[in-house]
Design a binder for these strands. Structure first.
Lengths: 191, 191
DNA sequence: TTAGTTCTCCTAATTCAATTAGGCAAATTC
DNA sequence: GAATTTGCCTAATTGAATTAGGAGAACTAA
């Protein structure tokens, strides 16, 4: 075994850092190789192709996001849990924009099923359980919430809020309040 | 003027069609040239570079989306307007996935300001006016709604809903009901 | 109508990313 | 220590982006 221990692990980590620096869409096998100080072809001993590089970063991101969500949720319930979960989500996106973008990379169903994605949405379901929604609404609410979080963060990161003076943080808080309000008004139980 | 009338107009239209067929991220100068039956360099007489090609498609998409939204809104108000606007948005994304993706392409502030994007969000503001939200909430609500629409559609198109049997249409309807409910509960005026 | 100008598209060539084939030397195995 | 494996390299191909420069047709002005 000659050379400077290139491993799948190191490749993934380097790719993730690179993605955060230059953007997930600009992530390339060559760039990763350069940063690792090896030639491009050397990486093909560890990865199938450029797509796999991206998939790996995506899986890492999903894992990290689920971990953070789990940590944020510990010991919380109700609106408290909702806000903690949402903040963990948004903070991750801001801290690791490249990985966040990676998390939205289209995985084939197999891979997606084995990723931490389901774990993440399971946590969202748990939060929603606290709102005691009537049966068929559960799934709708998961989609709604998922969309609202992703959509807001995605617009914010794309710079869509820079034109208006209002702080993005304030709007985020308002959004979470409103989501909580909406869910409570859908609840079987009254306030 | 020799040759088969290549114009910026035709290039843009061809690029948009191609994007819908193969995906915006796979849109390339070469592919457009091939489809137009000319050599790659020929396009550079009409476009600056590959990025401009994408920007053009993005601008076209924003224009079309705003037009559709305007048409959908005609003569409507309140929840009716909200739903019509949202449906126009979602339908466009389903009909022209490549262009929809293009509409999310990051434009520089200058270009963004001159695009139909502001017109689109102005319409959203108009809808919200019907809900008579207290002053500072207006902006928050625009961001909230924009995020919710984009997020839902984006997750749906990415196939995120295929795992669960529940119809995406049903969840969409639920989402719109809930958004309306949430906005009304934020209103100055009671129901 | 013709010489000059201007378009519009082309060929040739460069650079960079992705990827394959095949080689060589260090590390490991027995 | 010979055989094998492992880890990275060089060489080479393909495809996309982009630049430089050319040739022909159409337009223009005399």
């Amino acid at each position: 075994m000659a050379g400077a221990g290139i491993t799948g692990e190191r490749i993934t980590r380097t790719a993730a850092e690179l993605a955060d620096e230059i953007g997930f869409d600009k992530l390339t096998v060559s760039a990763v190789a350069r940063r690792l100080g090896v030639k491009d072809p050397s990486l093909y001993a560890h990865i199938e192709n450029a797509r796999e590089l991206k998939v790996r970063v995506a899986l890492l991101a999903l894992e990290e996001m689920a971990d953070r969500a789990a940590a944020a949720l510990a010991g919380r319930s109700g609106k408290d849990a909702l806000v903690a979960f949402a903040d963990a989500y948004r903070d991750y996106a801001k801290e690791y924009p490249g990985r966040y973008a990676a998390a939205r990379f289209e995985l084939d169903p197999q891979t997606a099923a084995g990723s931490a994605g389901p774990r993440h949405s399971e946590m969202m379901r748990a939060i929603l359980r606290g709102y005691e929604l009537p049966e068929p609404d559960q799934t709708d609410a998961v989609r709604f919430l998922g969309g609202a979080f992703h959509g807001y963060v995605s617009l914010e990161m794309a710079g869509g809020f820079r034109h208006t003076p209002r702080e993005a943080d304030a709007s985020w808080a308002w959004t979470l309040d409103t989501l909580d309000l909406a869910l409570r008004s859908r609840s079987r139980k009254p306030a």
